[in-house]
């Protein structure tokens, strides 16, 4: 269920502005890769190119290749919709559909792929996914309540349940805990540690301790100045990155000297 993603010479443009330049990296299956770096360094932009979500913004495009399972995600015959069904995404702010109940939220993606799901299958899937997101115990008695009735941390776990219900290969997380309190953050981090048994996870975070706690590998992005593109400075095992990084800028950033 988990796939390796291979990024080669990736440039990301918004119109004529090059936001991210020249990124090559290998994202290992069944592991957590953290993307860190100062604001505006292009890490979120880069994350969104992995499931072609950046294309939602008019004028955005990429050069280079992103290969998963031997398929170039930017190949001319590849439908971005199909890519997004394989590579799920969790956003910075929890975004359950407010017009749907908790159960409907979990099933939202499945309903897109496969309209005719039997009632029993749907119930099983809801339970599985919510259990996978460590939310089942808290919501099992109110599955028909609106998703927006939950707390922020619960909503974010609901979004994770919704993302894993379609059984993707990869899960992208864009600062999934930055809008949450410490307790909810802990719940999400614990969940990430469990999810990596089944999924390839890429997480963008501003929280250095979080990157150190949850990730196996860490990539540091930086930006030379305003108007310059963001670049991948270095990528290594998280332990190495946080103890003996090979680039001075990485050490400066991690030790809090800038950013």
């Amino acid at each position: 269920m988990a796939q390796r993603i291979d990024v080669k010479d990736l440039d990301v443009y918004y119109g004529s502005f090059r936001a991210v330049a020249d990124v090559s990296m290998m994202i290992e299956p069944r592991s957590v890769t953290a993307l860190i770096g100062p604001s505006g360094c292009g890490k979120s932009t880069f994350l969104r190119t992995l499931n072609r979500m950046h294309e939602v913004i008019p004028g955005a495009r990429v050069e280079g290749t992103v290969t998963m399972d031997g398929v170039d995600l930017y190949g001319s015959d590849v439908d971005p919709v199909a890519v997004r069904r394989q590579i799920g995404m969790v956003f910075q702010r929890p975004n359950p559909f407010p017009t749907m109940s908790i159960a409907e939220n979990v099933l939202a993606g499945v309903r897109l792929n496969n309209r005719r799901i039997s009632k029993a299958d749907a119930e099983t899937l809801v339970e599985q996914s919510l259990q996978g997101a460590n939310l089942w115990k808290e919501v099992k008695d109110r599955l028909d309540r609106p998703g927006s009735s939950l707390s922020g941390g619960q909503q974010q776990r609901l979004c994770i349940a919704r993302a894993i219900a379609v059984k993707p290969q990869v899960l992208l997380m864009d600062e999934p805990a930055s809008a949450l309190d410490p307790i909810s953050t802990l719940a999400i981090e614990d969940l990430i540690a469990e999810l990596k048994n089944d999924y390839t996870i890429v997480i963008v975070t501003h929280n250095m301790q979080q990157a150190a706690r949850v990730s196996d590998r860490t990539a540091f992005f930086n930006i030379a100045g305003t108007g310059e593109p963001g670049r991948l400075i270095e990528m290594d095992d998280t332990r190495t990155m946080f103890s003996t990084p090979s680039v001075q800028a990485t050490e400066d950033y991690i030790s809090g000297r800038f950013g």
Binding site: N51, F91, N95, F97, L112, R162, V166
Partner: peptide, 15 residues
């Protein structure tokens, strides 16, 4: 419509 909700749907693989 909040952009967040639109993106939630798109990220699930909605056309």
């Amino acid at each position: 419509t909040p952009r967040l909700h639109e993106e939630a749907a798109l990220a699930l693989g909605a056309t």
